[in-house]
Amino acid sequence: MRAVQTDWVDTFLAIAHHAGIRSAAHALHLSQSRVSAHLAALERVVGVRLVARGPRGAHLTPAGDAFLAHARLAVDELDAAVAAARDRDRSSARVGICLPVPPALLAAIEWPAGVRPSFSEISADAVDAALQSHAIDAALEPVIRRPGPSDTQQVLWEETVVTIESALPWPPADSGPVLVVASELPLLLAADYPFSGTPEPVAHVGIVLAMVAAGQATAVMSEGAAPPPSPRFTASIDDRAPRLRYGIRASVDGPEWVGAVTCRRSPVRAIPERVPQSGSGGAVFAGAPQRVAV
């Protein structure tokens, strides 16, 4: 069977909608002879009469009525296929996120025009396999190693590591202050830094700062999460640690847009302005937006 051309079907649908050759020609911006030629070609392929002409215009035959319903579905499906292909081309950025990322940082990422990423959680151990199998197009993760020969990695932003200690003359504990880090800062926990002791994760930044203020701990934090120096806290840059870096990584044969991703300077998170006194059992926190260095 000879293939049915889509412009023939469009012409047939216009004739059915406007109930006439002349009206269909006007709607399609075609000549009446071209419309008649399209209809004749379609009827030759189908093998039956689809449109009957009369003194009051054109109307569909019973065969034309049967053809109409399927023709509409076919055109709708074709339009949906074109739209899906175009949308897939624009939104093919499947980005795996290895560690929890503050929403403000995600909002600060500028994607190239036409790229609309979709995010999913992925473990750091699964990134390599996911990139190689093209299950994801890129990964948003800490930059704690050099890219391998099969991938490329671009740094989006970085932060300095600071050490927070109590500014008050607390007597040291028998074993000395412990080194703590908030489990809300997974980038610090994931990295392998040459500290004298392994940081112990604590549930919340506010609890970490309360422990420091009470002289119970020394905290290792990112600059964006650390409080400013005050009568309670002293902060110093830890020269032993590299800067914390987040980046986006893709396989070398991955999408070309990876190299065009940037990050604006943007507020990152709200940190406590007030911390609970030791043994108070709770506190009210007020946000103080910090900024990330990029």
Score class of each variant (00 low, 15 high):
20 G>S: 03
65 D>A: 08
53 R>G: 00
38 H>Y: 14
35 V>W: 02
218 T>R: 15
250 A>Y: 00
35 V>G: 02
115 V>K: 11
80 A>C: 02
48 V>Q: 12
146 R>C: 03
134 H>P: 00
213 A>V: 05
46 V>D: 01
151 D>Y: 03
210 A>L: 04
216 Q>I: 00
241 A>D: 06
240 R>V: 00
131 L>H: 08
92 S>N: 15
103 P>T: 14
147 P>Y: 13
269 R>H: 12
81 A>C: 02
31 S>H: 12
270 A>M: 06
27 A>I: 01
248 I>L: 13
53 R>S: 07
44 R>F: 03
78 L>V: 03
234 T>G: 05
134 H>T: 13
39 L>V: 08
261 V>T: 03
78 L>I: 02
174 D>V: 04
76 D>S: 10
72 R>V: 14
64 G>K: 06
3 A>R: 14
89 D>T: 09
198 T>P: 08
262 T>Q: 11
17 H>F: 04
180 V>R: 12
209 L>K: 06
106 L>W: 08
167 A>E: 06
126 A>Y: 00
88 R>F: 08
8 W>R: 05
173 A>R: 15
235 A>H: 00
259 G>N: 10
236 S>I: 00
138 A>I: 06
292 V>Y: 09
142 P>I: 09
49 R>T: 15
233 F>P: 13
166 S>M: 05
178 V>D: 11
171 P>K: 07
100 P>G: 06
194 P>A: 15
146 R>E: 15
210 A>M: 11
199 P>E: 10
34 R>K: 14
269 R>P: 00
186 P>R: 13
81 A>S: 13
280 S>F: 03
29 H>I: 02
230 S>C: 05
120 S>D: 09
184 E>T: 13
133 S>R: 15
247 G>A: 08
121 E>I: 09
138 A>R: 08
1 M>N: 05
138 A>N: 09
160 T>A: 13
271 I>S: 04
171 P>G: 01
206 G>A: 12
73 L>V: 08
121 E>N: 10
242 P>D: 09
8 W>K: 00
40 A>Y: 06
112 P>R: 11
101 V>D: 03
240 R>C: 01
206 G>P: 01
137 D>M: 10
107 A>F: 02
109 I>N: 07
168 L>M: 13
213 A>S: 15
224 G>P: 01
201 P>C: 07
280 S>R: 11
55 P>Y: 01
113 A>N: 07
39 L>F: 08
199 P>A: 04
187 L>V: 09
81 A>W: 04
293 A>P: 02
83 A>C: 06
11 T>A: 09
294 V>A: 09
99 L>Y: 15
151 D>G: 06
251 S>L: 02
165 E>Q: 14
286 A>F: 05
77 E>R: 14
236 S>G: 07
144 I>P: 00
165 E>M: 07
99 L>A: 13
150 S>W: 15
275 V>F: 03
12 F>K: 03
